[in-house]
Design a protein around this nucleic acid. Sequence first.
DNA 1: CCGCTCATGTAACTGGTTACATGATTTA
DNA 2: TAAATCATGTAACCAGTTACATGAGCGG
Lengths: 180, 180
Amino acid sequence: MEYTVLGIAWKRGPCTTYALMMELSTSTSTFYKKRAGTTYPLVERLIKNGYLQQSAEVGARGERSVEVTELGIGALGQWLTDPIDLGEAAHTVDFIRLRTFYLGAVNSKDRAGFIDGALIQLKAHEAACERAIARYKEMGDDFSALATEGVLFETRARLEWLTKTREQFLSIPQGKPPKR
Amino acid sequence: MEYTVLGIAWKRGPCTTYALMMELSTSTSTFYKKRAGTTYPLVERLIKNGYLQQSAEVGARGERSVEVTELGIGALGQWLTDPIDLGEAAHTVDFIRLRTFYLGAVNSKDRAGFIDGALIQLKAHEAACERAIARYKEMGDDFSALATEGVLFETRARLEWLTKTREQFLSIPQGKPPKR
DNA sequence: CCGCTCATGTAACTGGTTACATGATTTA
DNA sequence: TAAATCATGTAACCAGTTACATGAGCGG
């Protein structure tokens, strides 16, 4: 999304499109598998619309760098100040949870396999979040640290939910729910 | 996503594309604002690929209904049985959290406005989840009830996170983090 | 000097959104 | 009988993904 790129560019100051792309693809929070094909056109679009501009700063090897314009900072502030509506606040994605809606289609053994596999991945993700938070703190990026704390809260909630409901998920008979 | 439609069609048994569309757009868990323009082509695609088929059942008003084929049930089972990888398990979306990464761009008063507005929406969402769970239990759809319990856990974690970090978010000075 | 990372793109494809369009049936 | 809901689509647009393509600089 445009605002994420705008936000990263604002935090970093003048940097290359490549650097933006790298941060987009490695962040614990960003949900796009942004690669070159997305980032370069997106940055182009933002420049065309006046939110980013070519920076005067040029690297040793002639890399071009971009920076946020006044207009861009204004748009970022607008986005952060606009009250969030219920639709956006409630909109979350969780691919583990998504599957659990239909677990009745498979037997208990398969359900256990899925849930236990998911728990392992979530624990790995929890550890990754902790490392990311430490890294952000070290870098002095307090907002990213607090935001990633949110990912950690979420991950622990998912672990707790799956752990507590595991037995119930396994005990429900296979098949679709009764018709009404 | 295809699997969600497949899952809903499996749960419901023969039903119209319209009914699938309605469930997609009202569910607490589905993240697509699926409208006609998405659902009809998607169902067409699933029929073409053999996962859905026209059902013999026809409504009083001549509505066509679709149902899952054996192949479709197989694909659904496959999806549910395949172990989830870290990338998919870690991939979550939260538009409130996304903004908090860049809250340093605005002053403390604006941050407080954003956070407090978000808390109000999250509380409303929490109540909506509770109602949805009760409804699913009433309908005898235990898997959806347990899955939506997951949404509830998540929502409460987000509330707890924002409540606990609110003061910290407000106390950090405005501006971008120091360069390294 | 070979391979890796930095750096910058392009082109084709896919899939979702918006907006439009139509008509039947139900309900107030 | 008028409005709402059920029901079915289409077409233009937009944005993200995949895969391809290139070349410079750096470290072993």
